Simulated assay, not measured.
Amino acid sequence: MPDETSPARPDGEGLLLLVNSRAGEAVVRADPLPEIRARLPRARVRELGPDDDLDDVVAEAMAGGDPPRVLGVLGGDGSVSRMAHLARAHDVPLFVVPGGTFNHFARSAGLDDVDAALAAFAAGRLREVTVAELSIDDGDPITVLNAVSLGNYPQFLAERTERASLGKWLGGVGAIFSALREGRPVRVSRDGRTATIWSAFVGVGRNDPQRHAMMQRVTLDDPVLDVRLHHARGSRVRAMASLAFGRRTLQVLRALRVMPPASEFEREVTDSWRVRVQPGAAPAVYVHDGELEQASPSGFVLAVRAVPAGLRVYAP
């Protein structure tokens, strides 16, 4: 629900806005900073350099004599997710300005562009949203805004990262061909049951039942996790086809009859989900909000839980 009181002024006083200029390199758009500075003249706006660490910059600001009352970020989903974690840690609201390639969380929140984000901030419109917390081997929890994934999607991102010098598009094409040749299923165990899967997606809130790859959440306040497993009963081609998340792409793949049948999928809606990922031929990697992470090749425990009203964010 909207909160009538905003801890920052409409002119930006009380706001620290960090800018990840490296986000969204594949998107051609005008520089939004002049408009942001003009409409938020009292905000502290800082562009992150290649050696700047977002956590350190926020910690330094919070330890100062006039700590920010709102943390803001201009960047992609990875930067937004990390800033959300810091906003929760310091118990302040989050201000999101979309600045990445896909901006999945920003779009779910109705922040389709810079103008929408600035308008929500100026109106002081705060909403409480559900988040998830991810932990590996019972370590410190990480805030998740959209989804966690195991299997094919992390493997695809790992292959694309190795081809980063080619750019996102060419690197992605190369990663797809590599996954079609060498993709490996993952074995997971839960509650005494072991399964071999091509992929798992754990989305924040209930998502479209027709999709398997849940990159963007549908609602902000649904206090559950939507878990999708793709059991490894079909080919790698089907496994890669299941990663499609655009409506038109899904329609084309269904028309070509390369989408996996419903019998290969399993869905669970729950408030928490915990599995042990078994060691095997598949790389020990996972993804949260588009961020690729490495885990122990000897196996690891991945746990996710929903946190209702876990974050306050400016949104229409």
Results as ranks from 00 to 15, higher is better:
A175G: 07
S178Q: 08
A179N: 12
E182Y: 02
G183S: 12
R187I: 01
R187Y: 00
R190D: 11
G192A: 11
G192I: 13
R193H: 09
R193N: 09
A195P: 00
A195S: 09
T196E: 13
T196A: 04
T196S: 08
I197D: 01
W198K: 05
W198D: 02
G205S: 06
G205A: 06
R206W: 10
R206K: 13
N207W: 10
D208A: 13
Q210C: 10
H212A: 13
Q216D: 13
Q216N: 12
R217Y: 14
V218M: 14
T219R: 12
D221G: 07
D221P: 09
D222H: 12
V224W: 08
D226R: 14
L229S: 04
L229T: 01
H231F: 04
H231N: 06
R238T: 07
R238M: 15
G246R: 12
R247M: 03
R247E: 09
L250F: 00
V252C: 03
L253C: 02
R254W: 08
R254A: 15
V258A: 05
P260I: 00
P261E: 05
P261L: 09
R267H: 03
V269L: 08
V277S: 11
P279A: 04
P279N: 06
A281N: 11
V287C: 13
E291P: 06
E291V: 13
L292K: 06
